[in-house]
Design a binder for these strands. Structure first.
Lengths: 343, 343
DNA sequence: CTGAAAGCGCTTACAG
DNA sequence: CTGAAAGCGCTTACAG
């Protein structure tokens, strides 16, 4: 590997000057600047990032933190489970690369106490962290709020001198979808939601209640079921619900993938959607269009969320730009899985 | 941040000895080793990874390379498109973390010539790269084959002194699924495959031909359609095919997500699956069970592929263990989307 | 505008 | 078994 020493020699200057020229410092004459760039080109020099990071005491690397249960990030991305996060990551990757930062998934330290986690980031000179949160009880989240490492939380309202957050307006989405069903004449609606320990779950629940309340309705506790955020659990919960009672005309599912489990349970029992029962999803994953019937759902704007989070993180790191919390609007998408309540 | 200097002072030894004690070198007396570990614990010391990487001239970081079209890795993971790669990544992440390596998605260098790519890895002291390949023409693949950086290719048969590969037996899977249809009495089978520029596409095509040939059948060129690896394209291709002719009793799709598009096209035309037409997928994504009808497909063992790739990479990096190419068997999974050919 | 020198926090022959 | 010294490849006050 060619070093700055060799460039310096070829250009007839010192390493210090090479460094200055390459880092766009003023105070380098145009002429030597040119000589240096020529030398760089002819030698094919590229600065050693590791040495740079050590000397500068910082790096251009952003860590991806995932606080779900207890496994790694991508492990959690089983599509039936965190399909939504996948779309998010896609946007995050693009934005991060565009800003010239590396994205790192650090190997977990042995002890994963709060301090160990922060230290593992610090010893890597991580510039900032993008934290995808589904389990607010994860101690590392609290650690990040306090630590002097720029952090943007997604789906967790953490704030501090070095922390801000970005999230979709889950509550409003849930409100919209509930109101949509009510407008179609549904009065007895079942809610099959993901666990409300996560913010995204709690907000959905509140939004549904709000939607009912706006029309003077109350949530029937017997028609509310919480289960895991995946197709399988939703299928099981829907099956149990259907075996128990049938006094409802619509089911609001916590996510599109959960709606898939619900549809399957209905299909097995010969119930037609939306003729017998209306079903709604949440997320608007690209699959929605292709399942039968195409799902009415709530669209989460992954582009705005991902880009908003990355921009805020970089603004915090580079100390410029907007770092205020961002709540991204959600939007009802009506397709064919919802229809008028049967009379 | 506490440094080894401070540990040394507290333990009353030199930094050299601290380093030796911590890196498990022999030649440190039990007694001083203990003193050092006590100092480490009481100070909460953790070695600075960046400094370590510079001094050691290597790191414990594995880069993820993705050679699809021209965007980033996660960007390519739109589920309807590279659903299979997602399952792979999940296993890769787990294995990499377990081995104590970081996973890095390097920001692309400005010029992405061959040299720039290799250099960007070198200046980061990347220990090895895991290359997910869908576009064999990507020049970076050729660069990796030659570069002295340990590389494991997935879905590309690259080999060299520092390169090996892991892939599923696509061909055999395609053969099995074709034979399965033939056994059910199908004779006129349409093939709606992904582009055969990628190895995974070419092998599927060959496998289908082989499956036909084994029963003395030849592929009808008019019943072979290539399109993009996604639901939308497959839907369009299936629609075009159906509008053109109906002289087939089965459709082999290139992936499960493509099968979804095919099912949708059939559904729109009122054709029943499998009564009128049998449909098969490929990949066995978790969704298969929940779509109606549940898909007959070919299972790719993502666990074996991911784990096999990571183990080989680490074996190359640490210069021990098996680095021979690995071809993972595939398996036909029969569900309800295939049935006897209508008479 | 430029160079000599010190420093970033480790590791590793080299002596002893 | 242990320490002093040099080195990894940069950056950055400090002088000039």
């Amino acid at each position: 590997m060619v070093t700055s020493e060799q460039v310096a020699r070829l250009a007839g200057v010192s390493r210090a000057t090479v460094s200055r020229a390459l880092n766009g410092s003023a105070y380098v004459s145009e002429e030597t600047k040119k000589r240096i760039h020529d030398a760089v080109a002819s030698l094919g020099y590229e600065p050693n990032i590791v040495a740079q990071n050590l000397a500068r005491q910082r790096s251009r690397a952003i860590a991806l933190g995932s606080f779900f249960d207890d496994s790694g990030l991508l492990t959690q991305l089983e599509p039936t489970r965190h399909y939504y996060h996948l779309g998010l990551l896609k946007n995050i990757e693009t934005e991060v690369a565009e800003a010239g930062y590396d994205l790192v998934l650090p190997s977990r330290p042995h002890g994963s106490s709060r301090n160990d986690y922060i230290r593992s980031l610090q010893t890597r000179h991580i510039a900032g962290v993008l934290a995808l949160c589904a389990n607010p009880a994860d101690p590392r989240i609290a650690a990040l709020v306090e630590a002097p490492i720029p952090t943007v939380f997604i789906d967790h309202m953490g704030q501090g001198p070095h922390a801000t957050y970005v999230k979709p307006d889950y509550m409003d989405g849930a409100r919209q979808v509930t109101q949509h069903l009510i407008r179609l004449g549904h009065r007895r609606i079942a809610f099959l939601l993901g666990r409300s320990t996560a913010l995204s779950g709690a907000e959905r629940l509140l939004g549904c209640q709000q939607g009912l309340a706006m029309s003077g309705l109350a949530m029937n506790p017997g028609l509310l079921r919480e289960c895991g955020w995946n197709t399988e659990d939703a299928y099981a919960a829907a099956t149990a619900l259907l075996d128990e009672r049938r006094d409802f005309t619509a089911i609001v599912a916590g996510s599109d993938m959960m709606a898939l489990g619900v549809l399957h349970a209905l299909y097995e029992r010969g119930l037609r959607v939306p003729d017998d029962i209306s079903v709604t999803g949440f997320d608007d994953i690209d699959l929605c269009k292709y399942i039968a019937p195409p799902l009415t759902t709530v669209r989460l704007d992954r582009q705005s969320i991902g880009a908003g989070a990355v921009r805020r993180l970089i603004a915090m790191i580079e100390n410029n730009g907007d770092v205020s919390p961002l709540v991204v609007p959600t939007k009802l998408i009506v397709r064919q899985s919802t229809g008028p309540a049967p009379s």
